[in-house]
């Protein structure tokens, strides 16, 4: 019922035909559009529920798993050193797959290849905990996904998805997040749609979720068919969003309404 409200409101926004990228200096994190109370929740580690997942991730980091009976820590040592800045440059090119992989896929690659353990399911508590813990080690660092001839085609594909009109509402991501950010939609302010806080605690979810879960919410709101978790299109879109947020600070674990 509430999504039909969203649809009506979206239809009511005066949407120009051409979307333009936001100038670098005008970019603002979703954090800036939140109430003071929600910002405080993110800022104070002892009040940020996302930290419960980070603590779980720390415990998992140290726990031996799989046939190899190795913990992440056995190979990577102190995450504060080895994982610093890692989340800020994902999705990153993976030679084995011949394409960029996101942090969830990268962690699962170690689960399967190095720990000889079954992969963790998308949005499972353990995968969210590990990615929140790894992501936390980059908090405050600038987003910097390296773009080279190997990643460029995937970046372009992600950009294409961002600007393409889709779904029953015939909307593109850019129409909301580039052209109408700051305006209200069904009571909430449209943010610029930056991926800087993930995985994050969303009050609506009453829990932590990944960037892809968040993107699925928008795609369903557009009345389009969401991609499967881990699909190439999704990773390309993530790559474009990270590139679009280059230089902005990682906030993991963020808090959003």
């Amino acid at each position: 019922m509430r999504n039909s409200v969203l649809a009506l409101c979206a239809a009511a926004i005066a949407i120009p035909a051409f979307a333009a990228e936001i100038p670098l200096a005008e970019r603002r994190s979703g954090y800036d559009f939140m109430s003071r109370e929600t910002r405080t929740m993110q800022d104070d580690d002892t009040a940020n529920p996302g930290m419960l997942w980070v603590l779980d991730g720390e415990a998992l980091w140290k726990r031996k798993a799989g046939v190899a009976d190795r913990a992440c820590q056995d190979c990577h040592g102190d995450a504060g050193t080895s994982m610093k800045g890692v989340a800020a440059r994902y999705p990153a090119f993976d030679a084995a797959h011949g394409r960029p992989v996101n942090l969830e896929q990268r962690v699962n690659a170690c689960r399967v290849d190095r720990q000889k353990a079954p992969p963790l399911a998308h949005e499972s508590r353990d995968l969210l905990a590990l990615t929140a813990y790894v992501g936390r080690q980059s908090r405050g660092l600038p987003v910097a996904v390296p773009i080279d001839e190997r990643t460029k085609p995937f970046l372009d594909a992600g950009r294409g998805t961002f600007f393409r009109r889709q779904g029953q509402l015939n909307l593109s991501c850019a129409q909301c997040h580039d052209d109408n950010w700051g305006k209200r939609l069904a009571g909430s302010v449209i943010p610029q749609g930056h991926p800087t806080g993930y995985p994050l605690y969303r009050l609506e979810w009453q829990g932590v979720g990944s960037l892809q879960r968040r993107l699925r919410n928008c795609i369903v709101g557009m009345r389009a068919q969401p991609y499967d978790f881990g699909a190439g299109e999704f990773v390309d879109l993530e790559l474009y969003l990270m590139w679009r947020a280059r230089g902005m600070k990682v906030e993991t674990p963020g808090v959003r309404p």
Binding site: T46, M51, L52, L55, A59
Partner: peptide, 8 residues
């Protein structure tokens, strides 16, 4: 697993 987070 982390059950609680306490600040004192």
């Amino acid at each position: 697993m982390a059950r609680a987070l306490i600040n004192v």
